Simulated assay, not measured.
Amino acid sequence: MFRISAVVAAVALATVTAAAPAWASGQVSVVHFDLAAHQQPENITLEPDGSADLTFNGARQVARVTRDGRITILAQLPGGVSGIVRTGDGTLYVNVNAGAQTGVYRLGHGAATLFAPLPAGFVNGLALDGRTLYATDSSAGQVWRIPLSTGKAAVWAQGGPLAKVSGFGSNGIKVHDGAVWVSNTDTGMLLRIPVRHDGSAGPIQTRATGLAGIDDFTFDGPVVLAAINSASRLAVIRPDGSHTIALTAADGLSNPTSIAVRGKSVYVASAAYRTQLDPNLLITRF
């Protein structure tokens, strides 16, 4: 059972005391971004010092937000930027949608280069499993597998529960406990795809339903924390598929897109795509 227990140290351009829900104690720290500059965070990964690396989709940028609230633009990309992961040596990989230049880009030493070209669909979530990347295409209902050793992408899983209905199919993605987990935004499902011994995809399993508007998510032990974009909520999904709402717009969420966990700290990025109000990074503690 999760409970917010304390305030995270100041991690903001502006730190506010939110109206805390009944199960919360203390403050919530919030970094507010510039909507006019299209600073709408789509995805997140964390640095060892707790800084957050974010993709600003509309601005076509990757930015770093430090513990004292400083924002540094790390890269300007040729198209909209979505998923992001960090390897152990500090290299960042990001998904970019840019027509013929669509694919996974590698950021290192101040430069961004196309690492793995992908067909122009809508490349969205990105996950890392050791030396292998997995990327979702929300338009084609696919999961791509990309070894870091070669950068050669191949479709790993597709269709069925991954397919879109009218907007976004396979979206968020994480690797956990021998499987690739994927959210389908259109159907409101959380899916699990076992990784077989030979690296191929096993049968797609539905692990939770009734999550309309689910975007990206993360694991905290066996529990999933999911961003419910359209409803501006954070859902806590238990191993049996049941789920409850932990945070809402009243707590500062504004179309949340992605979540990261470091120890007891939980980072929730909100892009304000629909609300057009206060894109932000909310940080609290469970």
Rank of each mutant, 00 (worst) to 15 (best):
F286V: 06
E47Y: 00
V268I: 13
T284V: 11
T132I: 12
L74P: 06
L211S: 04
F122Q: 08
I173S: 10
H38Q: 10
S265R: 11
I283M: 01
R64T: 10
A24K: 02
D49R: 11
N43G: 09
A12M: 01
R233H: 05
L114N: 10
T275A: 02
L234N: 01
L247G: 00
P78M: 11
A9L: 09
G210R: 04
L126Q: 11
V143W: 05
L253N: 02
G178P: 06
A9H: 06
G172E: 00
D89W: 08
A19N: 04
G90C: 13
T244K: 03
D53P: 00
S258D: 15
A120R: 05
P194R: 12
A112C: 10
A63E: 14
T15P: 10
T15S: 13
G88M: 02
H109Q: 15
A24E: 10
G141Y: 02
N229D: 02
N124R: 05
V195S: 04
V123E: 14
T15E: 13
P194S: 09
Q61L: 14
V8H: 06
R207N: 08
P147S: 12
T209I: 07
A153S: 13
P203K: 14
G125N: 09
T87A: 15
M1H: 10
D129Q: 11
Y93C: 11
T72F: 07
S183L: 11
W181R: 03
S29H: 04
A154S: 15
A269M: 02
I283G: 00
L234E: 04
T244S: 14
L54H: 11
S29T: 13
G151T: 09
G79K: 08
S232Y: 06
F286Y: 07
S254R: 15
K174L: 02
V94P: 10
G110D: 13
P48G: 00
L277Q: 15
A231L: 03
T150V: 09
N184W: 01
R70G: 09
A163F: 08
L77M: 15
S149G: 15
E42F: 04
F115C: 05
R70E: 14
D186C: 02
I4A: 06
L54Y: 02
N255C: 08
I204W: 07
